[in-house]
């Protein structure tokens, strides 16, 4: 800063710390709650400091069963979530890379039309057309399947746009040099284009992984079989137990476990995450 105003610096730090505390508050409470036995709830207060049954609860939830009407353990649902998240992420990246490649590096009839058809998916979020989409997937016999969990969500205008931008910024002379060097469309794609798009792909990977992991409504609708439950949607099923029987400690532990992977990705790959977030909104 230009001038030194200690009180202003103090206010800045204080505001930020307060902000962090407020942001962390619900997670802190959940963490505390998960360390108390189920019987500690419903007696007029939630405990404010750690109890001693934390290890037991977390172990049970993670390895044995999540409780509250769900008999599968969290790690199993985590696996489903992981399969769905990775399926959506890789699927989106793969088909968007291919279609952006076609749109930027080839000339063919109806190219603009194709671009607009892809663009329209932006206007049709799944929540908006939920009933007919469900019917389509039901007709295709994809309920309770990994294909049903991932395939309908992998069309992505955003990723296609992002790769298109990225490809358009590659100088034309580079393409010409590659053609003179004897690289056809396939070699060019794998030898030049993919390596040059590496950071973009990685950044998008972070964003899409979070998107995929956090899917809620879609898995909720199309899975009725425990074997395909994903972690985020299972919370809803856990909450629909009659009020008095809810084991809050288990719900809190499950909630925290459901948050953990994407939060770890954001913090661990902060730079890529920020880049992905900013790029995909351009």
């Amino acid at each position: 800063m230009i001038e030194n105003r200690p009180w202003l610096t103090f206010v800045s730090h204080a505001t930020l710390l307060l902000g962090i505390a407020l942001v962390a508050l619900p997670v802190w409470m959940a963490l505390v709650a998960s360390t108390h036995p189920a019987s500690a709830f419903g007696v007029g207060h939630i405990p404010l400091w750690f109890g001693d049954s934390g290890v037991d609860t977390w172990k049970t939830v993670l390895l044995e069963k999540a409780g509250n009407g769900i008999d599968t353990p969290v790690f199993f649902m985590m696996l489903n979530s992981l399969i769905m998240a990775l399926g959506i992420t890789f699927g989106k990246i793969a088909i968007s890379l291919l279609s952006a490649y076609a749109i930027v590096f080839f000339r063919f009839p109806f190219r603009d039309l194709c671009f607009w058809i892809i663009f329209m998916t932006l206007m049709l979020p799944v929540e908006v057309r939920i009933v007919p989409t469900y019917e389509v997937v039901a007709n295709l016999d994809l309920l309770n399947s990994y294909t049903g969990l991932t395939l309908p969500l992998i069309a992505s205008a955003t990723a296609t746009f992002l790769f298109r931008q990225c490809f358009l910024s590659i100088p034309g002379e580079l393409v010409e040099a590659a053609r003179i060097d004897g690289a056809g469309p396939f070699r060019f794609f794998f030898d030049i284009l993919l390596p040059l798009s590496r950071t973009n792909i990685a950044a998008l990977f972070v964003i899409l992984f979070i998107y995929g992991w956090n899917q809620y409504l879609w898995p909720l609708l199309i899975t009725t079989d425990d074997a395909y439950y994903t972690l985020v949607m299972s919370i809803k099923r856990m909450l629909s137990v009659t009020d008095g029987d809810i084991a809050w400690n288990q719900i809190m532990a499950t909630t925290l476990l459901a948050m953990l992977p994407p939060v770890a990705v954001v913090i661990g790959m902060q730079k890529l995450f920020v880049k992905g977030l900013v790029d995909s909104e351009k």
Binding site: A94, I95, S96, L98, S99, Y101, A102, I103, F106, F108, R111, C114, I117, I118, M120, T121, L124, R129, P132, T133, E135, V136, V137, L140, L151, P152, L153, I154, A155, T160, P185
Partner: peptide, 21 residues
């Protein structure tokens, strides 16, 4: 070739976006 490259995206869009819409 470009049609082949676009095919997956167009198929998914047609089946899970345009058809429901």
């Amino acid at each position: 070739l470009p049609w082949l490259l676009l095919l997956p995206q167009l198929l998914v869009t047609a089946i899970f976006f345009l058809w429901p819409a």
